[in-house]
């Protein structure tokens, strides 16, 4: 479904990610793990067209993404829930969700998708007329994920959905992501919290200094010495 081949992307002269090759199959949940500054967010930004790709290729259902502007990538059905939530603070919860279904194909089903999102995140239904910027961090994270779902994505990319949340709230968020995955949506999950991420995904890649250094099934990675010492604190 999604296949990155030797992707290199940089902000200035120095590449932030180099020669990254990963793939995500239909309906799969794949993790992208690594420490601060490893380049995880940059991989997502390269896929969605927010950062210039200087080498390699990104294929999504046969379409080359590296030359497409971000809004055209979204139109192909890739929802990117960015790091730090980034809801539109001065739009209401409902307006944020409506904007999530801006592209014509999603707009046609908007009312139905909205009901679905409200059923997954009842708190969003309760707060539908509240300004997004006045919600708690956890609620904003739910909104950011819900906004991504409004696209009816073929691939949902989540950048550290548990960042800055209390453990209870982080667990709740992960449960929701699990629920969304169970409904058949493919997921590419970026996380620093490796143990939590491995409990959710089928496979994962470990990124360090802009390169993929390890990959394998969740079970393989959980038993890997290197992962255990560097990320699981064992």
């Amino acid at each position: 479904m999604l296949k990155l081949s030797s992707v290199t992307a940089s902000y200035g002269a120095v590449p932030a990610v180099s020669e990254v090759s990963i793939d995500v199959g239909e309906g799969e949940a794949v993790g992208l793990l690594g420490a601060n500054g490893a380049g995880k967010s940059t991989v997502l930004r390269a896929i969605s067209g927010l950062v210039k790709v200087t080498g390699g290729s990104i294929d999504f259902f046969g379409t080359e993404l590296t030359r497409l502007p971000a809004h055209r990538v979204t139109a192909l059905g890739i929802a990117h829930v960015p790091e730090g939530r980034q809801v539109f603070p001065e739009l209401t919860v409902k307006e944020n969700l409506e904007i999530g279904a801006y592209i014509p194909s999603a707009r046609a089903d908007r009312a139905r998708t909205l009901e679905l999102v409200f059923s997954i995140f009842p708190v969003l239904a309760e707060r539908r007329d509240q300004l997004a910027g006045t919600m708690s961090g956890g609620e904003q994270q739910m909104l950011a994920v819900g906004r991504g779902l409004m696209l009816k994505p073929r691939l949902l990319m989540l950048d550290e959905p548990s960042l800055g949340l209390a453990p209870v709230m982080a667990d709740a968020t992960f449960e929701k992501v699990q629920e969304i995955h169970a409904m058949g949506t493919a997921i590419l999950l970026v996380e620093q919290n490796v143990s939590r991420a491995l409990s959710l995904v089928d496979r994962a890649y470990v990124v360090e200094s802009g390169r993929v250094i390890l990959q394998g099934s969740s079970a393989e990675l959980a038993n890997n010495r290197q992962v255990q010492t560097a990320y699981l604190g064992l």
Binding site: L50, A70, P82, F88, Y102
Partner: peptide
């Protein structure tokens, strides 16, 4: 409010 994220919503 947020140019980059607006693009992520499919807004041209």
């Amino acid at each position: 409010q947020n140019y980059d994220v607006a693009m992520l919503m499919g807004i041209n």
